[in-house]
Design a protein around this nucleic acid. Sequence first.
DNA 1: TTGAAAGCGTTACCAG
DNA 2: CTGGTAACGCTTTCAA
Lengths: 329, 329
Amino acid sequence: MKKNITIKELSKILEVSISTVSKALNDSYEISESTKQRIKEAAKLYNYKPNKLAVNLKSGKTNTIGVVLPSLKNFFLARVLRGIENVIATTQYNIIISITNESFEKEVQSVQTLSNGLVDAIIIAVSEETQIKQDFSHLIGLEDEIPLLMFDREVNSIDCDRVLVDDYDAVFNAVNGLISDGRKSIALVSCINNSSVGKLRTKGYIVAVENTHDPIIIEGSEEHIENELSSLISQKKIDAIMALDQESSLAAFRIGKKKEVLLDKTIALIGYSSTVISEHLTPSLTTIDQHGKNVGVTSAKLMLKRLEKPQEKRESIIINSTVQKRLTS
Amino acid sequence: MKKNITIKELSKILEVSISTVSKALNDSYEISESTKQRIKEAAKLYNYKPNKLAVNLKSGKTNTIGVVLPSLKNFFLARVLRGIENVIATTQYNIIISITNESFEKEVQSVQTLSNGLVDAIIIAVSEETQIKQDFSHLIGLEDEIPLLMFDREVNSIDCDRVLVDDYDAVFNAVNGLISDGRKSIALVSCINNSSVGKLRTKGYIVAVENTHDPIIIEGSEEHIENELSSLISQKKIDAIMALDQESSLAAFRIGKKKEVLLDKTIALIGYSSTVISEHLTPSLTTIDQHGKNVGVTSAKLMLKRLEKPQEKRESIIINSTVQKRLTS
DNA sequence: TTGAAAGCGTTACCAG
DNA sequence: CTGGTAACGCTTTCAA
């Protein structure tokens, strides 16, 4: 393991001062062309690479944006990440990603690690555990230190930029669509009842069905959902299902398939799932498309704006979801 | 934007020396309990957080491992990442992730950025473009500076640790399985003919079919594959398909479905795709499972070992794939 | 055109 | 037990 050569060592070899080397490598007007060339050649020869840590420490800037994500299993978050990536890749900024696996402790650690000089700004979707605990102490005050942008998961107590999804409206509209289609008894299934996102979507459902029937809500594990749905379908108690996340969507799909109620639309099903999966199911699954890429692109752009104008008022942007109609509705 | 308080400022406030503050915060035996307490309280009060940049620069260690990935769309790579994550999360190390979008230029940039002090080690799967160009100049010599581990994509010219997948054998065995099942004419479809992975898999196919028939190879875009397959199936020229990646697998699946040759196994199909997708297709898709998680876990463990013993001989570990038999074969 | 020196925020050695 | 000082690798001001 041989260490990288430093400016100091280079200056010794070339018998010039440290500052001359530094200036030459940074193409300063103060240095003559000939020495510049000599120094640059030596730098290349010895494979000199500036130590980022030192540069960043000195300049107080890192040109890096930290992205803290709960999970990559979640297709939506992965898509958001790609949106962020795409935008940032066109700028002088780099991104570094930290995954919390929906754990509060990992999130605290990630935020601490990043916010202490490693990045110029943080884009975060808080973890499920954080939302359950409602403990945001690691984020409070952070906005005073570096720009902070939260997306997808709502946290009201923090003053920062936000990019949110219209979770309430999206489900409200989708369920209303089912009602207009003549559905009389719509069940809700969810594996994400602990998150702000899940709660908003559930509220959208509850309000949408309130004139039609009492809410029928099944929350919990995929297995639980499958069991409950199975008996509801057997007893012909429902004619439609609204699923709030990929796991519950696929659970509902499996049961619907098993009971042979999807192809003939005895039961209508609208879910949340990735495009590639939804399209390839038979029958293809009607979903609510959250436009994850757009959430990512919007977040990144808003953050870039904030980095340029740190003093301006924080913004909240809402990205509207749309129903992607396929064959289960 | 108020800057983080520093040890220096803290020392001024408390009217003690900088070194005393530093030692107190690091629980040095040299400092009395009472001053320790006083200093720690003040640190908490003023929300002191050590500047990572300075700490890392000083110590020459970052406790961070850089992971350079070509893409997150690739389910296999995403799974590897989760494997790495899981292992690293149990250690004192953090990981930072950089995505190259299969671009050579981005890869060079990522490696440069990371290797200049930002991380203690790099785990990388080179991009497709890098493999096409066969330009590894950004990696040559890197192993002398920090531990380097390459996974999935083979690059022979670099001396470093490796975790590879048995691409040749996997396809060879799968195709042989098809032959044992009585398949007489097996087509190969691939969207990844430019990568080392694709080439190895193709070779496995070619050798496997050589006693049975001439190879039938369709490489290119999904659309091209769909067109070619469509006519081959119509002309009854084939009775099985081996697909080398998710895109071609799904393209083959779509055509097989359209031509109604999958359910009755007129055409057998083995592909590469994520479990969640493969399972939910109708009929469910037989795939080659590369055990991505295991690749990630193995890579992370090997890297941790290398960080402990930098001098020991580099290793190459091969993770064997297995055929996950479902209903298309 | 070049160089000396201070400073970014830490840690650690050595004196006192 | 506490404090001064050098050092990590770099940039930048000021002097020469």
